[in-house]
Amino acid sequence: MRLCLEARQLACERDDRPLFGQLDFALGSGDIVQVEGPNGSGKTTLLKILSGQLGDYQGELFWNGVSLRQNRDHFLANLLYLGHAPGVKAGLTALETLAWYQALAGDIPSEDTSLEALAQWGLAGFEDVPAHQLSAGQQRRIALARLLLQPRPLWILDEPFTAIDRNGVALLESLIQAHANAGGCVVVTTHHRLDIARLGRIRLGVTGE
């Protein structure tokens, strides 16, 4: 089965101000798409719509051919969304945070895979340190460790390169590439120039008023 997120005539206006309109695209296995546009063009809003958080849009979204509104549970079980804020609690350690995310998603928590994922993100030795003692970049790395820990076909990443160093950027790029090669699908916003082959683009705010 080929997984697919499809948008038909997708449009959004907030407070009667048109943000973007008439987007048509289909994202499937192996696609990497970068959403581009100047500040305020609605990149985050588009990602919130695509991740099923914001139901306030015109047009239709389909997940595997069924309307997203009816297929929500199946869609959410296949989605990994990372937002602007990393979603890492200051009072919890990296391991506790990851265990919570696994329980929340219905995965069976496993400390070994968590340790492995953290080690790959360079957090070996920081597993049991409360996140408030870590830097912003390290907190972001805890969130990014979920990419290794929770295999989901669809990744929606809002500014994932924020606060991480050059090695982290390279690792994330290689992960995104590997995910697509393995048949996954990635939607990403960033102002960073991605070093990735076969990069699709959705441009916002170019034809706007």
Binding site: R2, A77, D107, I108, P153, H179, G183
Partner: peptide, 14 residues
């Protein structure tokens, strides 16, 4: 990665 993911545990665990 191409397989759809199904939650392995119910809501009670969450």
């Amino acid at each position: 990665m191409n397989r759809p993911n199904e939650p392995q545990r119910g809501a009670d665990a969450a």
